[in-house]
Design a protein around this nucleic acid. Structure first.
Lengths: 136, 136
DNA sequence: GTTAATGCAAAAACTTTGCAAACCT
DNA sequence: AGGTTTGCAAAGTTTTTGCATTAAC
């Protein structure tokens, strides 16, 4: 689905800024508002930081991006078009690994059956220690 | 283990403020720095918000509290002494449910076996829609 | 008496808001 | 043309830092 169609379906307009912000998030994989802003600045004229915030909020409303609070402070956005994935974050080295949702399918089933809770897998983040750091 | 012993083992001192902050987190179950500050203010003389921040950081270093990024922005702390639990957060009504770690044991095993990733269950948060909100 | 910890105030980081000018359709 | 979106600047939040004073040991 084109960005323009999605926007116009709700009376919004396609602007270069909106396309750029979506491109930034898609290309970066994970991006804070600041990082997205920097990405845009590198390859086009700068987009104001407040526009970045407004655009990310809009894109999230449209379901094109999602956000999670991965690190300390800033929220991290990623494109919803990307295949859903679970984040593994190493607390020692900070590395972010992605694993397929099938990994957590049993958990999702369990929560649904026993708690009536429908988990949003695309938003799931597991903190811990990665293989590399666990050796030391 | 007493708070005082734990502190002194590392050359730190026990102060009323530190005891109060730990009490706040323990009693509240989940608390943002601001909420902990309010709790203290209600039953004792006020503790400066910067002291709250410094104390939470210290208590976390000592392993007495842990934090997660549950909501938008503010980190949420909980006592490490409390039994470990997984947080289920409903994106519709905001309700926080706690479930025992056994629920996610299969997932934890899987991540360890296939990715060498040792998950920190006490820090695990699952976003989704709770039973109540899912009906509508 | 030493050294660590607190409170205060100022700064830093992050996010939101109002409004005139510019742009999309 | 008409309504939406942007950039700018200012204000709001949340968190951190420096330093003199106070308190723990």
């Amino acid at each position: 689905m084109e960005l323009q169609e999605t926007l116009r379906a709700k009376g919004y307009r396609l602007t270069p800024q909106r396309q750029l912000v979506l491109d930034a998030v898609t290309d970066l994989g994970h991006a804070t508002p600041d990082e997205a802003c920097a990405w845009v600045k590198e390859r086009s004229s700068a987009v104001n930081i407040s526009t970045i915030y407004r655009t990310l909020e809009l894109l999230e409303e449209l379901g094109l991006v999602k956000h999670a609070h991965l690190s300390h402070g800033a929220p991290t956005y990623h494109a919803a078009a990307a295949p859903e994935h679970v984040h593994l974050i190493c607390r020692v080295c900070g590395a972010i690994t992605e694993v397929p949702p099938s990994t957590v399918a049993p958990l999702v089933d369990e929560l649904d059956r026993n708690h009536g809770f429908v988990a949003d897998v695309g938003h799931l983040t597991v903190f811990g220690v990665c293989a590399k750091c666990h050796q030391s």
